[in-house]
């Protein structure tokens, strides 16, 4: 089965509505995305509720601490846990970020920026191949929001992302909000980014809100998706066609119905751009 339609990030606050008595509560939500780390090696209510949602909806897995770009060795225990979770959940797609999260055995729990160099590209591509081997599944890398770039950079971020995915033969989770945030922070063309990413590798799209500080933007996922990010999403839909798309909300989390309404707005944009007939 190929993932289709529009999804939401699964958050514990919404379990009562999703699993409650109202069978229409999640109308318009075609699938959910889980944060992998929240369910690796755990049981009890978190796992029980997540699997109850899984019984009713397709699911994708999204990680935050694979640290694919770190010069520390890949964490074998983490990969083992990730594989066990994937074997349980049977996700349609599985992803993590094109970043690093720590070195020397430490974890900063942040998505830290990589220098955009040949050395980094080769390092990451080699590790993605290993991850795909261990998981026995295709893997997606997501572009992150960044707040600095490096003097050492040798290429654009979209060249970096595309080259890694070509070498590793992996797919792309394209975060349109992150393109906006990084484009604003570093002054690159967001449209050039979209045009520079290979259409055949983009298998999922993320949308989110952020904190605009005037001279720079921080990717906070604590607000609705702003209109100017939705405008960029419309351009992405034109280029990539219909790609499974979801809203991430990680803070200041509203009632479930509010996110469902927001997701319907995203669906309308995609239908408008693709001239699709509403279901």
């Amino acid at each position: 089965m190929t993932l289709q339609g529009f999804g939401l990030g699964l958050r514990p606050q919404h379990f009562p509505e999703i699993l409650g008595d109202d069978p229409n509560a999640a109308d318009g939500v075609d699938w959910f995305e889980i944060i992998s780390e929240n369910f690796i090696g755990v049981g009890g209510p978190p796992l029980h509720n997540m699997m109850a949602v899984r019984e009713r909806f397709p699911m994708v897995m999204h990680g935050v601490s694979l640290s694919i770009g770190s010069t520390d060795p890949l964490d074998g225990n983490y990969l083992k846990g990730l594989k066990e979770l994937a074997d349980l959940v049977e996700p349609e797609l599985i992803s993590d970020h094109l970043c690093w999260t720590g070195v020397h055995g430490l974890n900063m729990h942040d998505l830290l920026p990589l220098p955009l160099t040949e050395e980094s590209a080769e390092h990451v591509a080699t590790r993605v191949m290993r991850v795909q081997d261990v998981l026995g599944r295709r893997f997606m890398l997501e572009n992150t929001s960044t707040y600095v770039t490096f003097e050492e950079d040798e290429m654009t971020e979209w060249e970096f992302l595309s080259e890694i995915c070509r070498r590793a033969d992996c797919d792309i989770l394209l975060d349109v909000n992150n393109i906006y945030v990084s484009g604003f922070n570093h002054g690159f063309s967001m449209e050039a980014y979209l045009d520079g990413v290979p259409t055949d590798r983009v298998k999922q799209i993320h949308l989110a809100g952020h904190e605009h500080n005037g001279d720079y933007i921080v990717d906070t996922h604590d607000e609705p998706v702003p209109d100017y990010v939705l405008d960029l999403y419309a351009k992405a839909v034109k280029r990539f066609g219909h790609v499974p798309t979801m809203i991430e909300r990680d803070a200041n989390i509203p009632p479930f119905a509010e996110l469902v309404r927001e997701l319907k707005g995203v669906r309308l944009i995609a239908e408008r751009e693709l001239d699709m007939v509403p279901a």
Partner: peptide, 9 residues
């Protein structure tokens, strides 16, 4: 105690 684990848990 900087974090040494994959999950903030």
């Amino acid at each position: 105690h900087p974090s040494t684990t994959r999950s903030v848990r």
